[in-house]
Design a binder for these strands. Sequence first.
DNA 1: GCGACGCTTCGGCCCTGGGCGAAGGGATCA
DNA 2: TGATCCCTTCGCCCAGGGCCGAAGCGTCGC
Lengths: 235, 235
Amino acid sequence: MTSPAAFAGLAALMGDPARAAMLQALLSGEALTAGELARAAGIGAPAASAHLARLVEGGLVLVHPQGRHRYHRLAGEEVAAAIEMLGGLATAVTPARRWPHGEEFRQARLCYDHLAGRLGVALYGALTGRDWIAPAAGGWQATEVGESGLAALGVDLAAARRARRFACDCMDWSERRAHLAGGLGREIAACCLRRHWLRRLPPLREGDPLARRRLALTPEGARQLDAALGVRLVA
Amino acid sequence: MTSPAAFAGLAALMGDPARAAMLQALLSGEALTAGELARAAGIGAPAASAHLARLVEGGLVLVHPQGRHRYHRLAGEEVAAAIEMLGGLATAVTPARRWPHGEEFRQARLCYDHLAGRLGVALYGALTGRDWIAPAAGGWQATEVGESGLAALGVDLAAARRARRFACDCMDWSERRAHLAGGLGREIAACCLRRHWLRRLPPLREGDPLARRRLALTPEGARQLDAALGVRLVA
DNA sequence: GCGACGCTTCGGCCCTGGGCGAAGGGATCA
DNA sequence: TGATCCCTTCGCCCAGGGCCGAAGCGTCGC
C-alpha cells in the first residue's frame, strides 16, 4: 500500500479490456510474442505494442527480444497471484453465470507456473500435513523427509532452489485456501506434466483465453499422488 | 475468471484514483458515509456519489442508508483480500520508496475486519500448529481444544459462527503467507481490540488513507498471546 | 542484397468518463 | 412548518487515452 495513486495506477493498468486479455493469456506462464498477444486481445499490432509498453513500464510484464520476435511474460509470481485473485473476485462478484469453463477448471489449472485448484490445495495440504515443508522466513523450506520424498517423485529440487523464492503461499481463489508457489511449486507442476500425471485440456472454443491453463489429472497421476502423498482426487 | 471482460471491468472499477482512495479508506472495515469518502478521495460530493454508485453496482461496496446518511462498506472479505493484495503488488512493483508508513504497518494492521501483518501470520501459524483449527470444506473449522482455547481468550465463537464463513485463508501481501479471515478472524481482531491487546496507532499525517488500519500490540497483548499461543512479537 | 516479416513510432480521430455547479429529494431538528 | 443538512440527479465541459493507417526500423530467409 504505498500511495493510493500507485494502487490506482496498477489497477488501471489491468483494467483495460485489451490489457486484461493479454494478462489472462500470460497467466499460463508461457512467454508469448507481441503478435500472439495482439491476437489474444483482438486488437491490431500498433495498439498491442502500446499496451505492452505500458505493461512493461508498469512492472507487470517482462520482455526479452529474440531475433525479430519479442517474447513477453508476467513479471513474477506475485503478479500472477494478483491477477488470479482478481479474476476470482470477478467471478464471485459478477452475478452472471459463473463457470463458463466448467467445474473442471476448478479441479486443476495452472496459476502462472504452478498448480492451482483443488489439486493445488490438496498438494499443499499434503506437503504441510506430512511435514515435507516447514515454515521459514517469507515462505517455506523443505524438511529432510520432504527432500527425499520430493526427489523420489522426480521433482528437481536444485532447479527449485535457483528460484528467487523456494516456496511460498499463493491464494487459490476457487478454493479460498493457499496453494504452493515459488520454485518448488513450479517444479512440482513441471514434474507432473513431464511424467504425464497431468495433461493439458483442449480449449473449449476458438480463442479461449484460458485454454493454456486448463489441466486434468491422469489416472496414473492420481495413483502416484495418492501413493506418495495421500492426495485423493478423481482423475 | 469468467470472461476477461469481467476481470477488466473489475480492475477498471478499482483503477480510478478517487475510487481507489475510497476503497483504501474502506479497508479498515468501518462503514463510512458518502461525505467522508468524498473527503478521503479529495473530490466533491457529486463525483463521490457517482463513484459510489458504480462501486455498489459493481458489487464491491454495500450501502445501508441510515436517516440522511448513507453508510458504505466493502462487500466482503474477498473484496478486501483482493484490494489488500493489489496494494501489496503496487508496493512490490513500484520502484519508489516502499514504506511510507514505516515498518510498523508491516507488523500489525487491519485487513478489512481481521488481523494482518506479522501478527496475523504468527497467529495463523499458532492456530494451525497447535491444531486449534483443522481444514474443512472451503476453509477451517475449530477443533475441540481450539474451541476451549479460543473461548478462554475471550473470542466470541458464536458470533464467529454466524458469519458466512467461519474461517478461511487470506493472503498477507507483506509476509507472503496466509493469515486468518472469516468470522473467526474478525472475532479474534475484535477480541484483541476490546481487551486492549491491540491499540490503534495515530495517523502519520493529515488525511492518511491508511490511518484507520494501523495497529500495534500492547505489552499486555504480547504477554497474553505468548502465554496462550506461543506468539512472540515485540509490543 | 532484396523481399518478407515482426514490431514500433507517428499522426490523427473519436469517445468514454471524470469533474464541477446548480437544482432537487428526503431526513432531522427546532 | 421551515431551516438545515446529506446526498443525488442533471447538464455541461474537457482531457485522457484507445484505436487505426501509414511509415520506419531491425531481423530473417532465399
